[in-house]
Design a protein around this nucleic acid. Structure first.
Lengths: 181, 181
DNA sequence: GTCTATATACAGATAGAC
DNA sequence: GTCTATCTGTATATAGAC
């Protein structure tokens, strides 16, 4: 695994941040270059096209999901609780990458949409052994989708309608009681 | 209530269809005019700007939600079951309008985002009396969000991971058992 | 590897004819 | 009320200097 150039990574970080904080429309190559502190030409040396930039972000997401799938199976508080709790986070690398790629999917990227469906399938497969039946698995997946949806929809700093703290604990307990094997 | 001109409504239908079927980026004024069978100038007679077009679609959604809130309270199978079942529909006027406005929100429209948050709050208020506690209400809302999310994400005709038929009945039974008062 | 300058395409919007 | 023609801004991408 050859580690990629620093400049390349910081361009990718800037692109992701723009997608998450200001939406797909604001994440232009110009704005990305400015945010990363390089010129448009400099950006295009690392990523030959907008499509290449999007593909690189999608690849980063896939790598983060690989790690996450490992952690789900090994989680102390149980796979379902771990999965739901991590669905509501806002600032770790995985969640930022998912939100960013969701924005690309909404903006019309077919590759982004396929990636998100694929990821969802992998999570579903990882959790299936821990749910008592199909409806229970549907329930867990849909609550997780709902948590992501609400985090993805709110523009920036607006507090969403998603439960936090004790409210989140109560929700997880309720879902586990309904879904656990 | 003065009924609006036929041409105006068909432009709005075309705009909504483009948003739902091909995404926010494809729903340009040019494409909307073409799909509605008018020229760009013709479209701009009815809607003086892109913003006016978006506002009209948002207003249409608000009106449909007013009707829906009435029906939720009056539903035979119970408000929660009715609400969840209607969250998974794909082709009635309300669901198409929600998906279209969700696309606008993702594309950066602040007004669309506020409208969606407002609608969610109204549904939550309508269902609160029928849920046994806060966690139960969170559960119902998040499952509904998840159903919408999955319908909104898939590009066009791709079958989503959302349960249908008997699977949906099982899910609703599970949620009701967990959440009902 | 990174820059400036420029080409090309398309979005939203205006003007004025019919 | 609907059209064509045109203006302006901005996004992606290329060419070539440093």
């Amino acid at each position: 695994m050859s580690r990629p150039p620093r400049a390349r990574e910081s361009v990718l970080d800037a692109f992701e941040a723009l997608l998450v904080d200001e939406g797909e429309r604001a994440a232009t190559m110009d704005a990305t270059a400015r945010a990363a502190g390089v010129s448009k030409g400099g950006l295009l040396y690392h990523f030959g096209s907008k499509d290449a930039l999007e593909t690189a972000l999608i690849d980063r997401l896939r790598a983060l999901v690989d790690e996450d799938i490992e952690e789900i199976s090994a989680a102390d508080e149980g796979p379902i609780a771990y999965f739901l709790r991590s669905s509501a986070m806002e600032d770790d690398a995985l969640d930022r990458a998912i939100i960013a790629v969701s924005r690309l999917a909404q903006g019309g990227s077919a590759a982004a949409g396929e990636t998100l469906r694929d990821i969802r399938r992998r999570w579903e497969d990882a959790l299936r052994p821990h749910a008592k039946d199909a409806a229970a698995l549907d329930l867990v997946m849909l609550v997780s989708d709902g948590l992501y949806f609400n985090n993805a929809l709110q523009g920036g700093a607006i507090p969403g309608p998603v439960p936090t703290g004790a409210g989140m604990d109560d929700l997880i307990a309720l879902v586990e009681r309904a879904a656990r094997d």
